[in-house]
Nucleic acid binder design. Structure first.
Lengths: 174, 174
DNA sequence: ACCTGAACACCGTTCAAGT
DNA sequence: ACCTGAACACCGTTCAAGT
């Protein structure tokens, strides 16, 4: 039973979610597929390309059909947070090179190019910070969170940031 | 002539700027200091800690004395861009865990906590995207930039994003 | 206090060879 | 087309030992 390129990408995403980016090595992906490391290079030219394919997959599910830019941003944030180190993978593999992504295109229709870019980069930075902080709490590196629910506070902060940006776009007449 | 912890951090920053994060290994830092790799562990418990110290150093120079929040953000962006892969290093080493940074504290004085966080995370995402894109152009991976100056366009986009956020804060009455 | 030398368990990638 | 096996030049980290 032999593998396809999407088998490799799927396996890589499983390894990422189970072990984190630090341990998402070609050799571990290979052994998840019960295959020699060198076999991966039949499907993918190098690790960088594999990471880019993973980033595309992570972003693929984002809902871009609605009319509410905040909802698009929340959906993007959800996708980035749905997998361990997802924000980091998408950041460095850069599924957002130039204005190529469909998410940015949709946001640009709704609020213009500058607004789209601002919303996108904020969402991105916020998701990354969220994931870094949640991991720090999980490790116990930030032991005493001031009473309560870090994930909820982080999400609330995100919504307020999006509201500020949308208010700014409204004020400058779109 | 023996080394101190700051010698190690300085050497690591030189290696980072010369070769990039991918090749900024403990072994390369060691050989830059003409020392065995194991010697580094006398000054630093592990690589992660070294990266955090590097991140602190990168952010240390940011000008936080002025009254203009946009100027603080521009200074932060400048610091992140002043060294190769600087935005990535600060992002993942996360000098912005909780609200610990002096930059965030100063911005919070000027525009409140939510505004500070929004400005900071946007600045952060934008710097990272800038660095990723500039590197792509340097490699030639994005061969045909539509006539002109990528760095300037990126900086212009940054200023417009900051203006949008500040307008939003103004509109929501600070 | 700061360093060497050797070792351990890993990496990404290439390449000839198999089916 | 897809894979194995072996090799190359690397990693981070530990630990006994030196000065």
């Amino acid at each position: 039973m032999r593998n396809s390129r999407s088998d490799v990408v799927e396996a890589a995403l499983r390894v990422l979610d189970d072990h984190g980016l630090e341990f998402c090595s070609m050799r571990r992906v290979a052994s998840a597929l019960e295959v020699q490391p060198s076999a991966l290079y039949h499907h993918v030219p190098n690790k960088q390309t594999l990471l880019a394919l993973m980033a595309d997959e992570i972003v693929r599910g984002v809902a871009t059909t609605g009319e509410d830019p905040a909802a698009v941003c929340r959906s993007l944030r959800g996708a980035l947070l749905s997998i361990r180190d997802g924000a980091d993978v998408v950041a460095t593999a850069s599924a957002f090179r130039l204005g190529a992504s469909s998410v940015e295109a949709r946001l640009a229709q709704l609020v213009g190019a500058d607004g789209a870019r601002t919303l996108l980069l904020y969402t991105f930075g916020q998701a990354q910070a969220t994931q870094t902080q949640m991991q720090a709490y999980a490790i116990g590196a930030l032991p005493d969170y001031p009473r309560g629910d870090p994930a909820g506070d982080l999400a609330g902060g995100f919504d307020r940031g999006i509201a500020i940006i949308l208010a700014g776009l409204e004020a400058s007449g779109r």
